[in-house]
């Protein structure tokens, strides 16, 4: 695979793309350069959100599976029962020190952290939009409120409320 470098380079699993698209906020991923997804992840996204990638409005780089994955990832994938998309994403990410790995899956996150990636999910990306001036605090609260009704992202209601209150307190809303 060619060496890919970028200040905010990220490898993205299907979850954040699907969940942000459900919220109409896929543009929040445009802040990551380059944004890489594997072909299996692309297939997963197309299966759940057929038009998400076409209507993204920013460049998403498709990458081929790197094989073999190396012993660490091989063991991690078996131990954590990672699916093919997660495995492909992590095999790309482990070649890029300090890269963001964006996922909403706990097991994939565990593996990503083990491999030295900066791992974050949909909630973090949404909140980050405030400090990156991509959304106002009010807009972010609005997005958080829409999560239960508009998305397939599972979040305990009390935890979501806690996050919403934290944002409101942080920005005096």
């Amino acid at each position: 695979m060619e060496k890919i470098k970028g200040y905010n380079a990220a490898v993205c699993d299907a979850g954040p793309v699907i969940h942000l698209d459900e919220l109409g906020s896929l543009d929040l991923l445009s802040d990551f350069h380059p944004l890489l997804i594997s072909k299996t992840v692309q297939s997963e996204i197309i299966k759940h959100r057929p038009t998400a990638l076409k209507s993204a409005g920013f460049k998403i780089k498709l990458v081929d599976l790197i094989a073999p994955q190396g012993p660490r990832l091989s063991v991690l994938s078996k131990a954590l029962s990672l699916d093919q998309g997660e495995l492909e994403s992590l095999s790309v990410a482990q070649e890029m020190p300090g890269v963001f790995f964006l996922t909403d899956d706990a097991a994939a996150r565990l593996a990503g952290e083990e491999l030295g990636c900066k791992v974050h999910g949909t909630i973090g990306i949404i909140l980050r939009a405030i400090r990156n001036k991509m959304k106002t605090p009010q807009e972010v609260v609005g997005l958080l409120n829409q999560i239960p009704s508009k998305t397939t992202l599972f979040l305990r209601p009390a935890l979501l409320e806690e996050i919403t209150q934290k944002v409101k307190k942080e920005y005096s809303l």
């Binding site: 909630i123 973090g124 949404i126 909140l127 935890l159 934290k166 942080e170």
Partner: peptide, 14 residues
Amino acid sequence: LMEQYIREDVEWGL
């Protein structure tokens, strides 16, 4: 595990 990760994500996001 997810809940713990989400709390970490909130800190990172903010």
